[in-house]
Design a binder for these strands. Structure first.
Lengths: 352, 352
DNA sequence: CCCTATAAATGGAACGTTCCAATAAATCAA
DNA sequence: TTGATTTATTGGAACGTTCCATTTATAGGG
C-alpha cells in the first residue's frame, strides 16, 4: 500500500470520460457544466482519491487564498485570543489561516516571513517581534503582499496597524489609581524599544501630570513582559527609599508577577499595594484577587485585523487605515485605596 | 509602485547573463557552479527582488518541506507549550511549521486538514478534535502523508501516538491523595468520548481499588475541560450527601476552576479540600495556592513528536512506534491531608 | 431546411521550477 | 596534435493546474 503516483486532474478526466478542462471547471464550481456531467466528474474525483494541488493552480492564478499570521509569542494567551478572533472571520470566508510563531526572535521572524512568502501567501497579519529591523518588511512591500500589523507597530513603517488605544487605556488606569488616593505611582515592565511601551507609558505620564502627581513621585521600572519581569519590578520598587503604593503594569502577565511577589512578602495585593494590569486576559477575572485591568477586546481586534486584510486583498491594495480600538478599565479587586491616605481626601467606597 | 510582474528565475538568468538552469543550481546551493558565477547570480537575485516560488518547485519535486501542526485548542496554554517544543526541533531542521487551530470542532478540522493537504504538506502533527470520526484521516493515509498524533489518540487508528503515560499519572495522583488520608475521592472533568479520559480515569480507579477505597466512595463527575467545567464539577460534588474531600482533575484548567469555586464558598483549597491537576502548565506553579499536578513534560513531548515526524519523512514511511512519555507528580500546596483524618493515621507534615 | 444564437465541452499554451541529457570549455596523458 | 577525462554550463521536457480560443451539439427563428 505504498504511495502510488497521486491522482491528477487527468486521471479524473479519463475515469469520467471527459476532458481535463471539464474537470477543472467542475472543480471551480462553474455553472457552465451540465449538472449530470458535473455529477459524473464528482464521482470520479471520489473514486480516484484525488487531492487538489493548490501549488499547481497558483502557478497560473497567481493569488493563493493562503493567509499567514505571524505571532511573536504563542504562549501568551493574549495572542492566542487574537488568533482566535481572526480565525472566526477567516473561517466564514472559507480561508484557513496558517499561524507561525516567531518567539520574539527577529531572526526567526525573518525565516518565517521568507517561508510564508515562498508559499505565496495572499496576505499577512503580523505582530512583529521585538527588535524587528526597519527593513524587515521591505521585501513584502516590494512584492506587493498586503500586510497588517496587529497590536504592535514599527517606528517608521506605513503598514496599517490594528491596535488598542494604549495611551488612553494607561491614562484611565492611572487616573483610577490617583482617584483612589495614591500619590506615589509606578509603571512596571516593558522596555522602551517597543512602541506600545511608549504609548502606555505616555498615557500614564500624562495622567500623572494632569492630575497633579509630582514628577519625582512617579517611578518607572523597565523589565521583562512576563510574570518573572513583574516579580523583579516589584523587588526593585520596594527597595526604594520612598516606594510607590500602586503600580500600573505593562501587561497582565507582569501584573500577575507583581501580585505573586507581594504575596511572597506577606503583602496583600489590593489592600497593601494596588496593581492594575493591561490587556484583560481571561485569567485576570479569575485571579485571586481578581485583577483590575485595561480591557482591549483582543478577539475583536483580531476580527478587525482579519476584515481589513480581506478588504485589502479584495481591492488589491497594500494600504489601509489604521484602526485604534476602544479600551476600558475593568475595575476588580486588585486596587484598593492608598492605606495611608485612608483618613484624608476621598473617604468613600471602602465599605466591606 | 503597483506590483509589477514578479521576478522569476529567468529574469535572474538574463540579469546575470547565464542560463536558468545555472540559476536553479545556485538556488539549490549546488557545488557544481564556479564560485564567481554563483556570486554573480546571487547579486542578480538581490537586484531583481526575487522570491522563490515553492509551489512551482514542488510541482517537480513532489515533496515540500512544509509541516503542519493541527491543534485542537490554541487558547489552552498547554497546547501552546506543545507547539513551542515542536518548533524548537523543526527550526534546527530549517523547517517552518504551520500551525492551524481546529477549536475542538471536527468540521473545522476537516477543512483544515483538506487545506493542508492541498498545500502539499510533507507531514502532519495532530492533536485531534473531540468527536473526530474514525474516517477523518483516511484521506491522509491513502495519500501516504505521514501523520503523528500528539497527546490524544483515536480509538481504532494505527497512526503513531506521542502521549504521556496518562494511566500512571492518574495512579500516582490518586495514590498521593489516599496517602494523605483521603477516603472519599472524586475525578472531575472530561468526557468519556476522549481516550485520554479513559486512560486517566482508569489509572485513578486502579489506584482506588488497589489502595482499598470502596467503589461507592469514588465519585466521577464529567464536565467541560475548562475552568468553567471545574466550577460546575465542584458544585455538583458538594451537593452530594457525602461529598468527597479530594479530587483529581482531568487537567489543570479544571483544577483552577475547582479552586476558584472553593474560594467562592469560603473554603481553602488544600486545607479544606485537596485538588490535584494534570499537565502541570506553567501557571500551576504560580497559582495561589500552588497547584499539585501531574507533570507531563509537554514541550518534551512536542520535541519527540517532531523528531518522529522528521524520521518518518526521511524514511518515507507512514508508520512509527508509539511513544509514551514519563510523568511525575509535582507536589505543591493544593492538597493537604483530609481534615477529619488529621488525628488518625499519618500525623506529620502539617507543621506551619 | 438553412442560418444564427446559445450551451456545453475541449485542446493547447502558459505558469516557474527541477533535472536529465547534452554541450562546451578546460585539463591532461600519450 | 589527438583523444579521453573532468569541470561548468545549458536546452528542453515535465510537473498539475487555469483559461482563452475553438469546436461540437442543441435549440430557435424564419
Amino acid at each position: 500500500m505504498a504511495s502510488r503516483p497521486k491522482a491528477t486532474i487527468l486521471d479524473i478526466a479519463r475515469e469520467a470520460g471527459v476532458s481535463k478542462s471539464t474537470v477543472s471547471l467542475v472543480l471551480q464550481g462553474s455553472g457552465l457544466i451540465r449538472p449530470e456531467t458535473a455529477l459524473k466528474v464528482r464521482k470520479a474525483i471520489e473514486d480516484v482519491g484525488y487531492v487538489y494541488n493548490r501549488g499547481a493552480a497558483n502557478l497560473r492564478k497567481a493569488h493563493s487564498n493562503v493567509i499567514g499570521m505571524v505571532i511573536n509569542d504563542l504562549t501568551n494567551p493574549f495572542f492566542a485570543e487574537l488568533a482566535v478572533g481572526m480565525e472566526r472571520v477567516f473561517q466564514s470566508a472559507g480561508i484557513v489561516p496558517f499561524i507561525a510563531n516567531t518567539a520574539e526572535n527577529p531572526v526567526r521572524q525573518e525565516e518565517v516571513l521568507k517561508s510564508l512568502m515562498e508559499q505565496g501567501v495572499a496576505g499577512l497579519i503580523v505582530s512583529p517581534a521585538r527588535g524587528t529591523t526597519p527593513g524587515a518588511f521591505r521585501r513584502l512591500e516590494t512584492a506587493g503582499v498586503p500586510v497588517v500589523f496587529a497590536m504592535r507597530r514599527l517606528p517608521d513603517s506605513r503598514i496599517p496597524v490594528i491596535a488598542p488605544d494604549n495611551h488612553r487605556g494607561a491614562y484611565l488606569a492611572a487616573a483610577h489609581l490617583i482617584g483612589k488616593g495614591h500619590r506615589r505611582l509606578a509603571f512596571f515592565g516593558g522596555t522602551a524599544d517597543l512602541v506600545v511601551y511608549q504609548e502606555r507609558l505616555g498615557g500614564f505620564r500624562e495622567a500623572c501630570e494632569t492630575l497633579g502627581i509630582a514628577r519625582r513621585d512617579v517611578l518607572v521600572v523597565e523589565g521583562e513582559t512576563s510574570r518573572r519581569g513583574g516579580i523583579a519590578c516589584l523587588e526593585t520598587a520596594l527597595a526604594m527609599p520612598e516606594p510607590p503604593t500602586a503600580a500600573l503594569c505593562f501587561n497582565d502577565a507582569v501584573a500577575f508577577g507583581v501580585m505573586l511577589a507581594l504575596r511572597k512578602r506577606g503583602l496583600e495585593p489590593g489592600a497593601d499595594f494596588a496593581v492594575v494590569g493591561f490587556d484583560d486576559v481571561v485569567e485576570a477575572e479569575h485571579y485571586m484577587p481578581a485583577l483590575t485591568s485595561v480591557s482591549v477586546d483582543t478577539a475583536g481586534l483580531g476580527e478587525r485585523a482579519a476584515h481589513v486584510m480581506l478588504k485589502m486583498i479584495q481591492s488589491r491594495t497594500t494600504r489601509a487605515e489604521d484602526h485604534i480600538g476602544a479600551v476600558n478599565l475593568v475595575v476588580r479587586e486588585s486596587c484598593g485605596p492608598d492605606r495611608r491616605a485612608r483618613n484624608t481626601p476621598a473617604g468613600m467606597g471602602d465599605a466591606a
